[in-house]
Design a protein around this nucleic acid. Sequence first.
DNA 1: CTGAAAGCGCTTACAG
DNA 2: CTGAAAGCGCTTACAG
Lengths: 347, 347
Amino acid sequence: MADANNNRTGKSAARGASGTFSLYDIAKRAGVSPITVSRVINKPELVSVETRARVLQVIDEMGFVLNRLASSFSRAASRIVGTVAPPIINFGIAEQVQGMSDVFSTSDYQLLVSPGELSGDHEGRQVMNMLGWQPAGMVLQAFSESDSMRETLRTRGLPVVEISEIFGKEPIDCVVGISNHEAARRMTHFLAECGYKRIAFMGAVSHGNDRATRRTLGYRAAMAELGRKPVDVIGPLRASYAADGLREIMELQPDTDAIFCASDTFAIAAVQECHRRGLRVPEDLAFAGFGDLDFASIIVPALTTVSVDRYSMGSLAAQTLLRRMRGEADVPRVQDVGFTITRRASA
Amino acid sequence: MADANNNRTGKSAARGASGTFSLYDIAKRAGVSPITVSRVINKPELVSVETRARVLQVIDEMGFVLNRLASSFSRAASRIVGTVAPPIINFGIAEQVQGMSDVFSTSDYQLLVSPGELSGDHEGRQVMNMLGWQPAGMVLQAFSESDSMRETLRTRGLPVVEISEIFGKEPIDCVVGISNHEAARRMTHFLAECGYKRIAFMGAVSHGNDRATRRTLGYRAAMAELGRKPVDVIGPLRASYAADGLREIMELQPDTDAIFCASDTFAIAAVQECHRRGLRVPEDLAFAGFGDLDFASIIVPALTTVSVDRYSMGSLAAQTLLRRMRGEADVPRVQDVGFTITRRASA
DNA sequence: CTGAAAGCGCTTACAG
DNA sequence: CTGAAAGCGCTTACAG
């Protein structure tokens, strides 16, 4: 049949001995042409029931796995979606990726996650790398804000969804996220409404993205609106900084009665440090966090925090990208997933 | 030059308008053949300094990104390494992936992470999916133990490194991990040596892998060796189970003086529950965990636990796979990364 | 419903 | 140090 004038068949069959078969091997065995096998896999409704059954049986018998490299490379439209994970995968990022992957796994797109590299100066290089896989779209988890990378992506006209701070942002294409500035501002006002008089802030150093900075600025904006003096310190986003940060704040303003932490990690660790020092939380010192990590509701006292639904952020980003890749016209450029202030026992 | 008898050049150049160029476009512009461009990228030492410089400049000017799909698909040996992440990415898994990716990023292999799907009955399907990308090797994070999948992989003769329980395991190819049975056994003996008399165990339900079960059996083995009666309960691996588990244990054995938890998540949450109930830790009830999460050393009292270096597990797995893919002969089939008992304040 | 031809953009192996 | 030819395993677009 088809193999009379196709000399590749023989070669593939020979390779088959080591466990790998091609479409041609299946076609030969099933007595059909390779395109028919391709259709059985990709567009089964175009093939007659009998032919389909026969081909499927051969596929099963031979343990055939379609070479995705070849199908992606052939003239078919790319079904790859790329994302680059930040170098430090924390719980929030994991939730976000989960949200994305749950959406893509029910689509016919394959999500490729390229883990972030530690050598941080190559943010853009990671994205360029990903571009080599010819993705139909990308989700950027906005750990970096390299301008040249943003420009490259914009020029290519590739559908891109950023998960990011949305305040005052000029997105490459679409952006999904929250306003960290607004969230921090609101939490600060909330603490003031709770009756706390001297609210300090423990912030994280910026890591190539502006989330951390936005939170600090939101706190300061609220303090200005309240007519109060801002007291803030900044350190690396690790639990170990919390004890130092606490000390720094108490030196700056010994009668501080509440500390708003830019992350739950800080808040949880700082609360533990208070236990160690014999300070009562919230009676002697109240705490609020940011993020609503798993442990935030577990620790004693349970943490008052800004709840952000990272899973939803991921799935909304994925859904938005799907719409963009389908070429829908009215896809919103900026989507705010919002946040809530969750009051528990710590403030 | 080269383009006179290559009709693809024109087409590629036309596509270039929308931002994508091929090797042919670069070759034409630089006045060399496509293979030379390929060599500048892959084996620069084979090209003269002048030619190299000229080509690199054109690549840079045109923002050329090599099509990895095409290079992987062409007859070159695959430079793809696949891994499937478990559906729930916890902190340990994240560390493990980090360890892997740090190793691969300094090699010329590209790590492809396929995020796990929630529809858990398709464990093997994920791996088959990955196989379609023609990886040169795979790292299995052993969240599932599907026999048919293991058999498929074995048959193909693909280099595979499993990160897994190593006790009594017949690896597909190579395995890196610890003996959870031994670790749990040792921690139980350690608690006994600390003077605790009635040591109970809070275990997690097995999730397609046998780590959880191994820990339970290790505890029971130690109790048998000590000539004591084992008291164990089992629940879903979520912080919310800890309060229930604690109650169940106290009903089973009201004078329990130490609880060994199969995970730090349980232990941290259970300690918090004790705070809530007014029980002193470790005076009234001592706790030990498993894993040494970030928060284990932060909470008050700091947690006594089994420390397992997940990052090292990931990087050792990657290094082992690299050796297997290079065809080294003496790669050990089973590697035990070991554990340590870390004593802190909770027991 | 099924098939023959052409080509996706690279790299290998062979020449020079 | 550089290049022309062939082919990797699929799928598209065209036929019938």
